[in-house]
Design a protein around this nucleic acid. Structure first.
Lengths: 113, 113
DNA sequence: TCGCTGTATATCAGATTACTAGGTAGCGCC
DNA sequence: GGCGCTACCTAGTAATCTGATATACAGCGA
């Protein structure tokens, strides 16, 4: 499997990735990062410095609802749940990604027969 | 056809798009932007503020060679030609895009059923 | 007990890079 | 002269990722 992808291409993808894994249910930050890593085959693994600000912004936007919960082993966790508004935002981002991916495929795609 | 895509998702794509259209041959800046627009079905149309600095950076990196040429109608044009080094960079960026696109597809793709 | 590893959250400086907005300038047309 | 299109360039702004740093709890081995 290829290594972790980093750099400018990742800009703007964190929101989509976070909302995507939260379709599965309520998760906490650390777990969200691991899910993203697992689902992408190791290609994506958001750093803490990008994940946590993104979660805070999504909560402030009303896309996520959060609550503290104690853990029996380790520090407390902040669980995030996607809201109805967040589901709408997810749909938009999925569509945006599809258009972006399509356009890049057309632009970069082979032209030579 | 969908509108022009803008924002964070575009980060890191200008280099790939420019090198891609310059596979076709020698082009000048304004023309490069139009080719990118045409090839992507209107999805991408780099602004001048991102295109020209990117061209200068690629030239400084040795990926492009440039020369001024007069035009019979309108101002002079700066033509860019991809170098051998630029072709190598293009191959890298194409591969990077493929890995990125694959990873996003896996991460976002449908999991249900 | 001390230190290390793993878990878990948080913030900041620095870097990258796209966008807007503005400037300069040639050419054709009315 | 003014307008629109062509053609180049740059400064400032905004977004956001990386990497470093900080705090803190739990388990394990020396």
């Amino acid at each position: 499997m290829p290594g972790r992808i980093r750099g400018q291409l990742l800009k703007g993808t964190t929101t989509l990735l976070v909302l995507t894994v939260l379709r599965d249910g309520e998760l906490y930050g650390y777990e969200i990062a691991q899910r993203i890593r697992a689902r992408s085959g190791g290609a994506f693994f958001p750093s803490e410095g990008s994940l946590y600000p993104a979660l805070h912004a999504l909560e402030a936007d009303g896309a996520l609802e959060a609550s503290w919960q104690e853990s029996d082993r380790g520090p407390r966790r902040r669980y995030y749940k996607i809201t109805k508004s967040g589901l709408g935002m997810l749909a938009e981002h999925v569509q945006e990604w599809a258009a972006f991916s399509l356009g890049m495929g057309q632009a970069v795609g082979e032209r030579n027969r």
